Computed example of a mutant assay.
Amino acid sequence: MRFLVMAITLLALLLGGSSAALAQKTKTKSTTEQSQTTNLDPNDPEDLDEIVAEADAAYFADNGGDPDYAYAFEMYSLAANAGDAYSMNRLALMYDRGEHVDQDFYEAFDWYMKAAEAGLPAAMSNVASMYRLGEGVGQDYDAAMEWFRKAADNDYSYALYAIGELYLGGHGVAKDATEAAAWYQRAADAGEPNGQWALALRYLYGDGVAMDSRKAGDLAYLALVNGLDIALDELKEIGSAETSPNFRRRIQELLKSDGFYNGTIDGSFGPQTMRAVEAAFGSEL
């Protein structure tokens, strides 16, 4: 008997994200445009802003072309070495992902740590994730919890979810489903899709909270419309999962109320419901 996935790896944070470390887009700079930045001084605040903007434009490919990772790396390096925490984190991500440079978790961890110590909440969470996974540094759940708490104290919503994951798995703390659910609730209240999905599973199976299939449906639907990949994947495979008919009907009700579905509210996830699920994904209603 198959159960829905009970947790989402914290590696998702490191791979990109929204509540997770600055979502990837795409852009390419022309040689002429690039040459205009060669005289910028990263120690001048206005020039520093322009350098960071140039780096983002190259990395995120806003013009619809291909990303120019080489130019982005050059500009992020200039800004990072001038003390810009955002650019330190971006540079770390490029080492983490192996973009333009060979993948190097140790170099990534060093830059994440510099950005975290400079006060960037996303970098604090990334440092915590590296400790959690043992990438670029020895695995250390206590250090992971410490840095996740620092990020959470700075209103970084993904960290609230990640702390819940540590409690759910008993990593560095006593395993406590009730405490995990409380942190997932905080994350969900802050609009974190990972927290919404994790809390949906708690309500669906009565783990750490009283079973409530309607609340589970509400939260799962929020995660879906907020674009959480695992919510889409799991709802598309719901036919082979042990889920309450009331949960499935609630999803259909929400799909119908938002105009994605016009079929019968029967809890049967046939082709029409599946098309509605895909249409609702990432709609951010």
Rank of each mutant, 00 (worst) to 15 (best):
S18E: 13
T32P: 01
A128I: 09
K114D: 08
A188V: 03
A162N: 04
L4C: 11
G208C: 09
R186T: 02
E242V: 12
R90D: 06
E284Q: 15
S240E: 14
A55T: 09
D207H: 01
E253P: 06
Q272W: 05
L78D: 03
G164T: 07
L166I: 12
E278N: 12
A220T: 11
I238N: 13
R214Q: 11
S35A: 15
L91A: 09
F148K: 00
S283P: 00
A23T: 15
G119I: 10
Y221L: 06
G134T: 02
W111R: 05
G282H: 09
L120H: 02
I163R: 02
S283M: 07
N81L: 14
L228R: 09
L91V: 13
D102K: 14
A55K: 07
E74Y: 14
G208F: 06
F73Y: 13
G98P: 07
A279Q: 14
M1Y: 11
E146S: 05
D140M: 00
Y156S: 02
T273Q: 04
D153R: 07
D218M: 12
V277A: 02
A152K: 05
R214S: 12
D56N: 13
I265G: 01
G134Q: 05
R275A: 12
L235K: 01
T243G: 04
M211G: 10
L15R: 15
F105A: 09
Y106W: 03
V52D: 01
G164N: 05
D62C: 00
Y156V: 00
L133Y: 09
V101K: 11
P121V: 03
E107K: 13
R186D: 05
A21M: 13
D258T: 12
Y158I: 07
N154T: 02
K215M: 13
F60P: 07
E234P: 08
Q36K: 15
A152Q: 03
H100I: 02
D153K: 10
I238H: 09
S257T: 14
Y184D: 05
E74S: 12
A231C: 10
M274D: 14
L201D: 05
I230L: 13
P42F: 02
A144W: 00
L14T: 09
E33H: 11
Q34E: 13
K29L: 15
E165D: 14
L40P: 04
G170K: 06
E242A: 13
S283C: 13
L48G: 07
M1K: 14
